[in-house]
């Protein structure tokens, strides 16, 4: 039997290769993301709102919406082709499958953000003067980590029910409220360069991430039981 980490990496690599081979889903999610950026900045321009204050909120709401599309991929393909049982057999433990899918979701989300976040930054015309770029990146990473973890956990739930795609955002958003708060406030702190003031919120993000990274160890067995 291969080691825990090695099995995770193997499944992760398979998923990533598969996703990059046929990029249509990734691309349409990306188009959706850029569209969100465009719609938001256009609407805010019309409403004549100070874009700098509103940037963190718009950023995270966009990422939220984008993740609804991006994070429902983890188990969809296996389900479609009936390969879930085989994959379960190959992975040995269900938590291996969770961590592989989690890493995959996180990678996809970060790839999308790589395009969408700079675009939003440019479109909303946010100054970089006093911003702490490192802290900004850390906040985006920590926020995406939590999103990917919760998303993978819930995708394991919704993929088993016919016609439950709509259920995913309903299940996810209330759970993600603390993450949303932490991520928005951290981004705000990073932009104004006042990192010390929001450090507590960064720790909250880390606690959230840790919780939803460890919780699946206990619960994922029950989710993928059938």
């Amino acid at each position: 039997m291969l080691k825990f980490g090695r099995r995770i990496l193997l499944i992760y690599r398979k998923d990533l290769q598969d996703e990059l081979r046929s990029t249509d889903h990734l691309l349409s999610t990306l188009v959706f993301g850029t569209m969100l950026v465009f719609v938001f900045s256009f609407a805010l321009e019309l409403a004549d709102v100070g874009t700098e204050q509103i940037f963190p909120a718009v950023l995270w709401v966009s990422i939220f919406f984008m993740s609804v599309l991006a994070l429902q991929r983890s188990f969809a393909k296996e389900r479609e082709y009936g390969a879930l049982d085989a994959l379960l057999l190959a992975s040995g433990e269900r938590s291996v499958l969770f961590y592989a899918k989690f890493l995959f979701s996180l990678t996809v989300l970060l790839l999308l953000e790589l395009v969408v976040v700079p675009l939003l930054w440019i479109f909303l015309d946010v100054g970089v003067g006093s911003a702490s770029l490192w802290f900004f990146l850390a906040a985006v990473l920590a926020g995406s980590w939590g999103l990917a973890a919760v998303g993978t956990l819930l995708n394991g739930i919704t993929v088993q029910l016919p016609g439950a795609r709509l259920l995913f955002p309903i299940l996810a958003f209330p759970l993600l409220i603390p993450l949303l708060m932490g991520a928005i406030l951290c981004t705000q702190g990073a932009l104004s360069g006042q990192v010390q003031a929001v450090l507590g919120w960064f720790y909250l993000l880390l606690v959230f991430d840790l919780l939803f990274t460890v919780l699946p160890l206990l619960l994922f067995d029950y989710i993928l039981e059938g």
Binding site: I157, Q160, L171, L219, Y222, I223, G226
Partner: peptide, 12 residues
């Protein structure tokens, strides 16, 4: 499945 998944969600 619905009962089991709802139970997991209730705990979360």
């Amino acid at each position: 499945a619905r009962k089991r998944l709802a139970a997991v969600y209730g705990i979360i």
